[in-house]
Simulated scan of single mutants.
Amino acid sequence: MERILESQTIEGEIGLVIEYKPGKSEAIQVLAGAMQLIDAMDKLDHCLLSSIDSSLEPVSILNDVAHSSLKIILARALRGVPDEHLSSLEWKKWLGSLLVHGKHLLLQKLDADAPEISRTLDQLEPQYRDAPVGLVGYQPPRVSEVQTALDGVRQARVALPQVGVTVQTELGDIVMEEQAQESPVADPTPHSVRTNTGVEFFKIKSTDMLGQSQWQVMRNGKTIKVSMLHRTWLEQYQKRQHQILPGDSLECRYEETVTYDTDQNEMERSLAIVEVLRILSPPAQTSLPM
């Protein structure tokens, strides 16, 4: 049975305000976007705590919801708190303050590049080092971790188009500007497909005793993957009714499919065995007379 870790409330309540359009905004889009944003900020908190103790799991606790705009009041809590810190109010206060300051600085840097994120973490370094008495001073998290966490917040903001979003902290409000959806790089469009068929000898490189198709054969001096479509023969082979030894080849009817783009550049090539005609073994080597 999975053990449910007890949550320990810490300082640092925040407000998340989503200015939806009453009677126009789609409920699922607004609520799903709010959940995605809360999850992204939890992950940002986790990133800020990762250099202190990787077992700490920050969670958002719902304190209140106002409805003029969608205003969600979130308390901060932690799971996985080490036993020695469970009763330490000073430790919880330090962590709560660290998370508030960290989010307040970093949420203003959603579009920041690595050098700017690094400078922001430098601003937080004194607070990491200012741990309660008896604890070793800590370092801020890695830039790469923070950059990934901020990417998650940015994508969550993308999920809330045409509405205002503000994060309220004790240090001031942060207006999160609307983020444009990044256009994915379009893959070349398949333009034409050509299929070749015939009979050919394939030297077996490796077989698949359990699966359905992932065989490897030698063709023109190269190792390629081939789909085995001859299911009856494949089942017989898996039941050991056919024996394939190193160096053996298959004489097969095959089907090869080649996809080209609009400039006639090859995009994809796949090979399938339609029918196994026979297994061929190399000639047996005979010993020379002494």
Rank of each mutant, 00 (worst) to 15 (best):
L95I: 15
G15D: 09
L250K: 03
L250A: 01
V165N: 04
D248I: 04
D261Q: 07
V133K: 11
V146F: 00
P188Q: 12
S97W: 00
D263P: 00
M209F: 05
L135I: 04
A32T: 13
K222R: 13
L56Q: 09
D113N: 11
S281D: 01
A272E: 14
K21M: 06
H85V: 08
L271F: 15
G102N: 07
V226K: 05
R119P: 01
P190E: 07
K222Q: 15
S60T: 12
Q243R: 11
S60L: 04
Y237I: 12
T148S: 12
L78D: 12
Q241A: 12
M228G: 07
K205D: 12
I52S: 04
D122H: 09
K203T: 14
R76F: 03
Y237L: 14
C252G: 03
K103H: 10
Q216T: 12
G80V: 06
E125R: 15
M290D: 10
L31T: 11
Y128Q: 09
V226R: 03
V163L: 08
L210M: 07
L62K: 13
K109A: 04
S118K: 13
Q285H: 03
I204N: 08
H101K: 15
M41A: 01
I38G: 05
V185T: 15
S51I: 01
Q214Y: 02
K239W: 00
R278L: 02
E178D: 13
V185N: 08
E200S: 10
V175Y: 05
K109V: 00
D248F: 02
T120Q: 05
V158Y: 01
Q214M: 03
R231G: 00
E266V: 15
D113I: 07
E26W: 00
D248M: 07
S270Q: 14
D130S: 14
N196F: 14
I10Y: 10
W215P: 10
M41T: 13
V81F: 03
D130L: 09
R76T: 14
T189S: 12
P140A: 03
A75V: 00
E255M: 13
T148I: 05
Q264C: 03
M218A: 04
R129I: 06
H101M: 14
S7G: 06
D208F: 00
G137E: 09
S50H: 05
S7E: 14
E255F: 02
A114H: 04
Q216M: 08
S249Y: 04
E26C: 01
L150V: 03
I174H: 00
I117K: 00
L277D: 02
S7M: 14
I279Q: 02
G198M: 06
I4E: 13
E11N: 13
E182Y: 01
Q8H: 15
W94L: 05
E57R: 13
M290Q: 10
S281Y: 03
L106Q: 04
E6F: 03
V158S: 01
D122M: 13
